[in-house]
Design a protein around this nucleic acid. Structure first.
Length: 562
RNA sequence: UGGGGAGUCGCCAAGUGGUAAGGCACCAGACUUUGGAUCUGGCAUUCGCAGGUUCGAAUCCUGCCUCCCCAGCCA
């Protein structure tokens, strides 16, 4: 609880702290993360997970993982497995508290029977269309169902026969008897059970009636001894129903539902339906495409659990709907990876450089720091020889102002190696394209230090041609070109046509040969990269997580703008 | 027009009657064998608007405005 005071406050933390202080619950603080197994987890879920597990941990409580599997036609075990994997990857653990709403089907049924006995629920024969008609509108009250006043006995009999499978889908429902004139539409005799002759991924064909969310959720919470049922804003309207059910059924110290705003990010979509469309219609390569905001996509892209958790922590918790700038997340991965990712040299768009005064056949190795942020990370030896590759954009025949890189007659330092000067530019006579640079190497500058102390402002990354390893590098950009993917009404029209650029002729330093899938690196002067699962030792594949901050690009942009 | 929510810097967000934290972004500078990182400084006389209460209000009261959610036998 000490942490509770050291972290920035938020209204949920305050409510829970107050409940602890007043002893509102004679049991430990208990929350739950209740995903429906009908899709993959995305960045929005990360916030809910962080809050659910975080609040419990802060107050010495527990958080359950509970699958809200009350709709058999939408759900599947494939998602169950995936969700568990993602929650663990994010860094949370439910120990042995893995539950399913479907585990409670029998109990839930008994609670429904109890409600009927109390005269608080009835079997209704209205068709779906009729129910809608009777419900009224936002501004007009509804009308009571003609079946509303059936006897307890008749209701009990009918409900039992619903369970027995005597009626077809949609023929009848069990409804709560509350108030058809309520301003809150959720209180206009909400449906508690519907008939659905469908095979459930866990209970098989044992049931042909299934509880609705509104019925199953509060009761599942109560059954598990949840104290604080945290959910998103769209359930605010359901809270009176949540409370009505628990009160009517006589639960002591019932759980409290508290709603908070979801996490939204700029340039990002979190609608399950639309994400599915992107996958199914081939706009991305799958649910784990590195451009997807799914946890699987983020992982493959190279985002770390720590960065995602940190985002959730720093954006706070409240009821104000907002859209967080994706740059915040990008900043946080950089912050994390800057501390942890080993530095390495990779040339993405190679330009050959021949060091004319460096002895042919000679080679040597230079120690280069693995991470200047972490002296403990040590150094590695990087091989050097007469012919190297540098980045094409690190050379300019007619350098613009403040260009610190290679140009005819100019000097530059090769990171950790030597200072070189460009003497000659070799071009393809047919196209005029620069194909090679011939440079001389200041042999006195081993390690990159000028012997006479002269200042060399530019430092380039490089790879020795003879030693380099080929690689494919996938450069990702935002999936959508507009901050709000929904802008203009058609999210597909807002897709960024340049969200993926595949570079195939890349060369990386030999130390990368042993890199394993999902390993993180900083490619010096480029950005953070992650080994794609497609990678093999013969053909390395890297995904760009995020580029380094690029002050030079900013200067150029400004000079172009005027 | 019914019910439920929300409005503090470009974005996120503290603040709970005592005179506007912090982060992102941005700007300026220092340093730099990553034009990275780091460091320093700048960045809301004002809290949706209008009244009122008070010595004093973003915080209390009144009225208004704007935005979001709800009419699935989805969750």
């Amino acid at each position: 609880m000490q942490e509770a005071t050291s972290k920035p406050s938020n209204f949920i933390r305050e409510i829970v702290a107050e409940d602890v202080r007043t002893g509102a619950f004679h049991r430990r603080i208990h929350t739950r993360f209740p995903p429906e197994p009908n899709g993959y987890l995305h960045i929005g879920h990360a916030k809910a997970i962080t809050i659910d597990f975080g609040i419990a941990a802060e107050f010495g409580g527990l958080c359950n993982l509970r699958f809200d599997d009350t709709n058999p036609i939408k759900e599947d075990t494939e998602y169950v497995d995936s969700i568990m994997e993602d929650v663990r990857w994010l860094g949370f653990d439910w120990d042995d508290r893995l539950y399913y709403a479907s585990d409670y089907f029998e109990q839930l049924y008994q609670y429904a029977v109890r409600l009927i006995q109390l005269g608080k629920a009835y079997v209704c024969d209205l068709s779906p269309d009729e129910v809608r008609e009777y419900r009224g509108t936002l501004t007009e009250p509804g009308r009571e169902s003609p079946y509303r006043n059936r006897s307890v006995e008749e209701n009990l009999d009918l409900f039992q026969r619903m369970r027995a499978g005597e009626f077809p889908d949609g023929a009848r429902t069990l409804r709560a008897k509350i108030d058809m004139a309520a301003g809150n539409i959720n209180l206009r005799d909400p449906v508690l059970y519907r008939i659905q002759h469908a095979t459930h991924h866990r209970t098989g064909d044992r049931w042909c009636i299934y509880p609705t969310y509104d019925f199953a959720h509060p009761l599942s919470d109560a059954i598990e001894g949840i104290t604080h049922s945290l959910c998103s804003l769209e359930f605010e309207d359901h809270r009176p129903l949540y409370n009505w059910l628990l009160e009517t059924l006589g639960f002591v110290e019932p759980p409290k539902q508290i709603e908070f705003a979801r996490l939204e990010l700029t340039y990002t979509l979190t609608s399950k339906r639309k994400l599915r469309q992107l996958v199914e219609e081939g706009y991305v390569r799958g649910w784990d495409d590195p451009r997807m905001p799914t946890l699987k996509g983020l992982r493959r892209r190279g985002y770390t659990p720590a960065a995602i958790r940190e985002l959730c922590e720093r954006i706070g918790v409240n009821k104000t709907k907002g859209v967080v700038d994706i740059e915040y997340l990008e900043h946080l991965v950089r912050e994390d990876l800057n501390r942890h990712a080993p530095r390495v040299m990779a040339v993405l768009r190679p330009l050959k450089v021949v060091l004319t005064n460096y002895p042919e056949g000679q080679e040597e190795s230079f120690p280069v720091e693995n991470n200047p942020e972490d002296p403990q990370a040590g150094t590695r030896l990087v091989p050097f020889s007469r012919e190297i590759y540098v980045e094409r954009e690190d050379f300019a025949e007619n350098p613009p102002a403040r260009f610190f890189r290679l140009a005819p007659g100019r000097e530059v330092r090769l990171k950790g190696a030597y200072i070189i000067r460009c003497d000659e530019v070799v071009k393809d006579p047919a196209t005029g394209e620069v194909t090679e640079l011939r440079c001389t190497c200041d042999l006195q500058s081993r390690g990159g230090e000028a012997p006479d102390g002269r200042r060399v402002p530019g430092t380039l990354h490089w790879v020795s041609i003879r030693h380099a390893w080929p690689a494919e590098v996938r450069l990702y950009d935002r999936l959508f070109a507009t901050e709000d993917p929904e802008a203009g009404g058609d999210f597909l029209a807002n897709l960024n046509p340049n969200s993926l650029e595949v570079l195939t002729g890349c060369w990386v330093e030999p130390s990368l040969r042993t890199a394993k899938a999902l390993d993180h690196f900083q490619f010096l002067r480029h950005g953070y990269f992650c080994v794609d699962p497609d990678s093999t030792p013969e053909r390395l594949v890297f995904n760009r997580t995020v580029a380094l901050r690029d002050t030079w690009a900013k200067i150029q942009r400004k000079s172009v703008a005027g």
